[in-house]
C-alpha cells in the first residue's frame, strides 16, 4: 500500500496545489493512477479541504476520479518547511488512491497517530522512510484498545 518509492521526506512546494501535485506524482511513479487523477485531487481539495490536523493533509480524488485509479496505494510526501494550506501549516501530505478498501488499515493507523501528539511529532520529523512505513503499518480494526 505504502511503498518506499512513494515516500519522499525532503520536498519543497510553492503552495497547496503544488504539494498535491507532488503527492499525485508519487502515486503516478508507483503506477497506482493515470495522470488525470492528479487534477481530480486538486478539484477535490477546492471543494473541501483534506486537512486533518497535526500538520497533516490527506489529498485524494473525487468520486469521478476513481476511474483513474489503477490500484489502491498511498504516497507520503513531507515538506519540512511547511506548506500554507488555507491557513493551516502542513508538513505531511498523504496522497490516497483507492478504488477498494486496501487503504483503510493505514488510515486507521493515521487516525490513531494523530490523536497522540508525540506520535504525530515523530511522523512529522522522522528522516527514515522505513520508520514512516512502520509507524503507519495497518492495525486490525478489531484490535481492542
Amino acid at each position: 500500500m505504502l511503498e518506499p518509492a512513494a515516500v519522499r521526506l525532503d520536498a519543497v512546494a510553492t503552495g497547496r496545489d503544488d504539494a498535491i501535485r507532488q503527492c499525485g506524482e508519487a502515486l503516478l511513479a508507483v503506477g497506482a493512477i493515470d495522470s488525470s487523477y492528479v487534477d481530480s485531487m486538486i478539484q477535490r481539495e477546492r471543494s473541501i479541504s483534506t486537512y486533518v490536523g497535526e500538520g497533516v493533509a490527506i489529498p485524494h480524488g473525487t468520486l469521478d476520479g476513481k476511474e483513474s485509479v489503477r490500484r489502491d496505494a498511498l504516497s507520503f510526501v513531507r515538506f519540512p518547511d511547511g506548506v500554507d494550506w488555507d491557513g493551516n501549516l502542513v508538513q505531511v501530505c498523504i496522497g490516497i488512491a483507492a478504488k477498494g478498501d486496501g487503504h483503510i488499515g493505514i488510515l486507521s493507523s493515521l487516525a490513531r497517530i494523530l490523536m497522540d501528539p508525540a506520535q504525530a511529532k515523530t511522523l512529522r520529523e522522522t528522516n527514515d522512510a522505513e520508520a514512516v512505513i512502520e509507524l503507519l503499518a495497518p492495525v486490525g480494526e478489531d484490535e481492542d484498545e
Partner: peptide
C-alpha cells in the same frame, strides 16, 4: 459520508467504529 468515500470519512469511521 464524504465525496468519494476515500479519505476523511474513512478515518472518522474507523475512529467511531472503535
Amino acid at each position: 459520508a464524504c465525496d468519494a468515500g476515500m479519505g476523511s470519512s474513512v478515518m472518522l469511521a474507523s475512529t467511531l467504529r472503535k
